[in-house]
Design a protein around this nucleic acid. Structure first.
Lengths: 230, 230
DNA sequence: TCTCGGCAAAATACAGTGTATCGACATGAG
DNA sequence: CTCATGTCGATACACTGTATTTTGCCGAGA
């Protein structure tokens, strides 16, 4: 018995329903991050006592699951992608865009299996793009590998973005941005490769680094699909 | 000014120090997960009032950062890897093993930039393995892409593991394990590809699926290192 | 030796959290 | 008109991270 099994409460549910609860929670999270979402605040925003929510949701984690699935509705592409590569490409970019709109998604991505109806629809569309192209085992590996990549990449990107924001400095000025600690560490000479990196590295655009890494991984998948044994 | 800049308190620090605090927090987390770590419980385990901790740590998030860096000490390989591929391979597998020992690491991985001394040492070793092999830009892309992959893969693996544990069923019995919801969804016929997948798919070993995905990504990186423009 | 000042540590305090429980009220049935 | 049901609100509890106040010790000066 998970969230998804719970039926909408029977009839006269007042002006309150799950959709409204989830929407309130999402707007709260959009404004103040995940930690700004408390059942009391969600309830307050709906002019309702905190306990009312438990008629629609049985735990805060469930609310998070519902929020995530709501965002998967934004991720689902509106038109069926042409081939598997386009499908994964679009999925990755739409997930990233959604995370841009809902930064808190980065904190939840990959944290639990996504089994809501919208997430399932996304998975369906993705798998459908592989129809007849390879054995299920290979398809699974392909989808999971690409998903793991963009999930991890998005999380790191948001983590860096927040760090920059907290220090007010750019990612390129890594040393200063991270406080004297890193600078001092580098000065010890114990990290020559890292030091050279920080010193000579050029500022990289997050968009292109995400897209480039994605292309690499997609190339890898393409190679495996072409020669399944390799 | 970050955690790493804070000096150990001057001299007579009682039998208490950061190491002991972090160790207590880690053992608490190992036993009961991240949510079992509260400053009060950590303090209690050290026979100390909760406020004592604030002489060594200024926020709970800092404690988490310290815990993560402590685990990076386990991740750091004891001998210098032969080439870049071995370096990334080892890094990925050691990170996964560490997460197996400290499951809570999955919740923190990629959530914040890892800038502790041990994390820096790990980065140093990894970068050093690329010395002279390619321009910095390419090296960055290589390391970040592989890291994104294994970070995401480890998180998903732990997420699935927990879901299995919660339902007591195997990942292969996805439908039942996820409660009637998924089963019912699949029965609607709206997800034919997914249904076929769940129905025909074979149980996959987490070890091999992690290793296989990793090899794919490493192959991709190798291809790019060989032909930098491609 | 006694007293006082400073300071580390402990106790208390506060605002908030998720959630359980209980009491009132309103609404429908007989 | 009465009574039962069941929904909703208020209250309560155990806990959180952290700020503030109180305590008590220990060394310096008289």
């Amino acid at each position: 018995m998970t969230v998804w099994d719970r039926p909408e409460p029977p009839t006269r549910p007042a002006p309150l329903d799950r959709e409204r609860i989830v929407a309130a929670a999402i707007s709260l999270a959009d404004e103040g991050g995940l930690e700004a979402v408390s059942l009391r605040k969600v309830a307050a925003r709906l002019d309702v006592g905190p306990m009312r929510l438990y008629g629609y949701i049985s735990t805060k984690e469930e609310l998070f699951d519902l929020m995530v699935d709501e965002v998967y509705a934004e991720i689902l592409p509106e038109e069926r992608p042409g081939d598997w590569r386009e499908a994964l490409h679009i999925l990755a970019h739409r997930t990233r865009q959604a995370t841009r709109r809902h930064e808190w998604l980065a904190d939840l991505l990959g944290g639990r299996p996504a089994l809501g109806p919208n997430a399932l629809a996304v998975t369906e569309t993705t798998l459908a793009a592989f129809d007849g192209l390879a054995d299920l085992e290979t398809v699974a590996r392909a989808v999971e590998t690409v998903s793991a990549y963009f999930t991890g990449a998005i999380r790191r990107e948001i983590a860096n973005l927040r760090a920059e924001r907290a220090t007010g400095l750019s990612d390129r000025d890594w040393q200063r941005a991270s406080g004297p600690h890193v600078t001092r560490m580098l000065a010890t000479g114990r990290f020559p490769a890292l030091a050279k990196f920080v010193h000579d590295g050029t500022e990289v655009d997050a968009d292109v680094s995400f897209a480039t890494g994605l292309d690499w991984v997609l190339d890898a998948v393409a190679a495996k699909l072409a020669r399944p044994s390799a």
